[in-house]
């Protein structure tokens, strides 16, 4: 579904990604772990087309199409979804209006008819229930006055509403207490199926207890330095990132 080859990217002229290679197939959940400043969030922003990030080399194919050639809204309409680490507030615009606009844009792009108000409302109620969101959240302005946990839940709610093919979770666990983490993970697990794929970006192993990945990659200084199964996450938790960094150092020496 997603094929990243030799991806290099700069932020403010400084190279942050130094040649990422990653293949994600339909039905798979990959986790990217790594210390602060390793380039995890940069990867999420580059894939979704944030203009503050400059791609200097490499290719990304999404279902065979050149992803880097598309503007951010086209990537979204093709089925790419980012659950933001810091969801943005849009004062004066209700969650419902925002979601209706987004959903209809995506459906229009994919030659699907717009949802009727009733269909839309039913879907809202349905998905809100999954996440234990109360109805007032739907009519409130997008993320305005939301608590940290509500914002993260709202991201997952949007994911359920928009039904993307490929989901990037950027530090979705940060700032969540254990109950909220359980609810958010539950939303992800319900949505997870053989026809979609996930890339979970996280600093801690904790989230991966709830969202079990098929593969774990360790990102350090803009490169994937180790890949493995879900047991790799546990090893990291136990030994810390230094363990890998030391190993990397040894490898380079050899």
């Amino acid at each position: 579904m997603l094929s990243i080859k030799n991806l290099h990217a700069n932020v403010d002229g400084k190279e942050i990604l130094k040649g990422i290679n990653l293949e994600i197939k339909t039905g798979e959940v990959h986790a990217i772990m790594g210390p602060n400043g390793s380039g995890k969030s940069t990867l999420a922003n580059v894939l979704t087309g944030n203009k503050s990030y400059e791609v200097t080399n490499g290719t990304v194919l999404f279902e065979g199409k050149d992803l880097l050639d598309m503007d951010p809204e086209t990537r979204a309409r093709e089925g790419l979804f980012l659950a933001f680490q810091y969801p943005i507030e849009i004062p004066g615009i209700s969650n419902a209006t925002f979601l209706k606009t987004a959903l209809n844009e995506i459906r229009k792009y994919n030659n699907l008819a717009e949802l009727t108000p009733k269909e839309f409302l039913d879907r809202i109620k349905d998905k809100a229930k999954v996440l234990g969101l109360d109805d007032t959240l739907i009519s409130r302005a997008v993320n305005v006055g939301f608590s940290g946990g509500e914002k993260k839940r709202n991201e997952i709610f949007q994911m359920l509403m928009l039904e993307p093919k490929f989901v990037l979770l950027d530090e979705t666990d940060s700032g969540l207490d254990i109950d909220a983490l359980r609810i958010v993970s539950n939303g992800v697990n319900i949505y997870r199926n053989p026809n979609n794929a996930f890339l979970v970006v996280t600093h801690y192993q904790r989230l991966l207890n709830y969202i079990q990945p098929d593969f774990v990659h360790v990102l350090s200084k803009g490169r994937i330095i180790k890949s493995g199964g879900k047991e790799l996450a546990l090893e990291l938790e136990e030994k810390g990132y230094d363990w890998i960094k030391t190993k990397e150092f040894e490898t380079e020496k050899v």
């Binding site: 944030n50 503007d71 809204e73 990537r75 943005i88 849009i90 987004a102 995506i106």
Partner: peptide, 14 residues
């Protein structure tokens, strides 16, 4: 906010 515009872009809005 460019971050606001990007957020809406990422949800499929031009």
């Amino acid at each position: 906010g460019e971050d606001q515009i990007f957020y809406l872009n990422q949800r499929g809005i031009s």
